[in-house]
């Protein structure tokens, strides 16, 4: 479904991605794990068109989207939940969710998706008229995820959804990611919480300073000694 080929991204003189390649198949949950500065966020931003790569290709369903501007990618079936949630703080929860459906025009279908999002996130329905900036961190994360789902995506990119959340919310967020996957949506997950990410992922890629250094079945990686040492703190 999503194919990344030899992606190179430079920030000035610094090479953030040094030619990474990976693949996400339909229905999979793929985790990208690695330390700070490994290039995880850069990878997601390049895929969704927020950054343009110096070389390499991004293919979505065999269509080359490398040079397609970011705002046109949503309607091709890809949504991105950005790092730091980035909800619209001055808009209400409902307005934020409607913004997620910006590219869609069929009102009855939007209403149907909204119903589904409210079903997955009852908390958002309770707070639908509250300004998003007044929500707690965990609620904002749910809103950011719900907002992404409003575009009815085939694949969702999630950047550090558990960052800065209390342990209870972390568990809840991972449960939600699992249920998004169960509903048939493909997930590309970037996480520092490698243990949780590997527990729900099908496969994973380990990034180190702009390179993929290891990849494989998530269960195998969970038991890999070098991974345990470097990322799982065991």
């Amino acid at each position: 479904m999503l194919k990344v080929e030899n992606l190179v991204v430079n920030y000035g003189v610094i090479q953030a991605l040094k030619g990474i390649s990976f693949e996400v198949n339909e229905g999979e949950v793929i985790a990208l794990i690695g330390a700070n500065g490994a290039g995880k966020t850069t990878t997601l931003q390049t895929i969704s068109g927020m950054l343009s790569p110096n070389s390499g290709k991004v293919l979505l369903n065999d269509v080359d989207i490398t040079t397609i501007p970011g705002h046109k990618i949503v309607s091709m079936g890809m949504a991105h939940v950005p790092e730091g949630r980035r909800v619209f703080p001055g808009l209400t929860v409902l307005e934020n969710l409607k913004m997620g459906a910006y590219t869609r025009s069929n009102k009855t279908e939007i209403a149907k998706t909204l119903e589904q999002v409210y079903e997955s996130f009852p908390r958002l329905k309770e707070r639908q008229n509250q300004l998003a900036g007044t929500l707690s961190g965990g609620e904002q994360q749910m809103l950011a995820m719900g907002r992404a789902l409003m575009s009815n995506p085939k694949i969702v990119l999630m950047d550090e959804p558990s960052m800065g959340l209390s342990p209870i919310y972390v568990d809840e967020i991972f449960k939600i990611i699992q249920s998004i996957s169960d509903a048939g949506t493909t997930v590309l997950l970037v996480e520092q919480n490698a243990k949780k990410a590997l527990a729900i992922a099908d496969r994973a890629y380990v990034l180190e300073t702009g390179n993929v250094v290891l990849s494989g079945d998530a269960k195998d990686l969970l038991n890999d000694d070098s991974i345990k040492k470097a990322y799982l703190g065991e």
Partner: peptide
């Protein structure tokens, strides 16, 4: 719709792009 896009862009330009809004 363009009015909504204006509000979104004024709140957060990058997030607006991720919503499919032409900034």
């Amino acid at each position: 719709k363009p009015g909504q896009a204006m509000r979104a862009v004024s709140e957060d330009r990058d997030a607006a792009t991720l919503m499919g809004i032409n900034v």
